[in-house]
């Protein structure tokens, strides 16, 4: 098999014979896989209660939606993957483009804060420095990518809620992460900003693993290239959104989540 790339070699070493069908297909095509997020036996407990139990997940580059009712474990799973809560199991990123280890995973909570006193471009540049981005992309380009060029020198604290979210999204994009985890990134935004966030995420998914936790129908439609449904912390569905529509009561599920 050709492709003696460093990342490729690591991929073979790490994944070995346990590659998913998708990867196997890629191997058959002879294409090098993009970055991959692999979870094995990830479990999170809170106050003695197990809130997440994921036996195995392999998520390749592209947009993936993590969905489920409130309390289903979406946020806990993302935080465990990001290393912000203590959990059991193993999280690996293979074939990472730039950052390694923790730097290979970027995470943005539902209400990101911490850099409000900086201008948009300062925040992006700070994120680059802090996370050790080695790929030279001008901070202004990341700002441009989220459509905030006009606000590039505005303090984040002075932006609207939607613009603020986009500014922090730019700081996420600026990181050398091959895997981006976003927790409800469009909640509380108006329609235009929701659209802008989705466009950015779809763009980012062309070269990275983008996992978005959401239960908003519009997000599921726009970002659900692949859907992982959680219930009580366990994966109850993993496939394309089309397959989900075919296998479940789509409207009923949405109603359940929205009501919850």
């Amino acid at each position: 098999m050709p492709l003696p790339r460093k990342g490729w070699k690591r991929w073979q070493e790490v994944v070995g014979g346990s590659a998913s069908p998708v990867v196997t297909a890629w191997l058959a095509d002879g294409r090098p896989p993009g970055p991959y997020l692999i979870l094995d036996g990830v479990a999170v407990e809170r106050r003695g209660r197990r809130v997440v139990q994921v036996e195995h997940l392999s998520i390749g580059s592209g947009s993936c939606v993590l969905t489920g009712a409130n309390g289903s474990g979406k946020s806990s799973l993302l935080m465990a993957v990001a290393g912000l809560v203590r959990g059991a199991g193993e999280v690996r990123v293979v074939n990472a483009v730039d950052g390694q280890g923790r730097q290979a995973i970027g995470y943005m909570p539902q209400e990101p804060t911490g850099l409000d006193h900086l201008t948009v471009v300062q925040a992006v540049r700070f994120a680059q420095v802090l996370t050790g981005a080695t790929v030279e992309v001008d901070a202004a380009r990341h700002v441009e990518a989220v459509g905030l060029s006009a606000q590039i020198d505005e303090r984040i604290s002075r932006l609207s809620g939607g613009q603020r979210r986009l500014a922090y999204l730019a700081t996420l994009l600026a990181q050398p992460a091959s895997v981006l985890l976003l927790d409800e990134p469009t909640v509380g935004l108006d329609a235009s900003h929701r659209l802008a966030v989705r466009q950015v995420l779809v763009g980012a998914a062309s070269s990275r693993v983008v996992v978005t936790a959401t239960h908003l129908p519009d997000d599921l439609e726009a970002l659900g290239e692949r859907m992982i449904v959680l219930r009580r912390g366990e994966v109850v569905f993993d496939g394309t959104s089309a397959a989900f529509r075919g296998s479940q009561d789509w409207d009923g599920a949405l109603s359940e989540w929205e009501l919850s």
């Binding site: 290393g83 912000l84 923790r102 995470y107 990101p112 802090l130 996370t131 050790g132 700081t171």
Partner: peptide, 16 residues
């Protein structure tokens, strides 16, 4: 401030 930005500094905790 560090706590608020923990989502960002988690990539390189000691540096953050």
């Amino acid at each position: 401030a560090l706590r608020e930005a923990s989502w960002l500094v988690r990539a390189r905790p000691w540096r953050g």
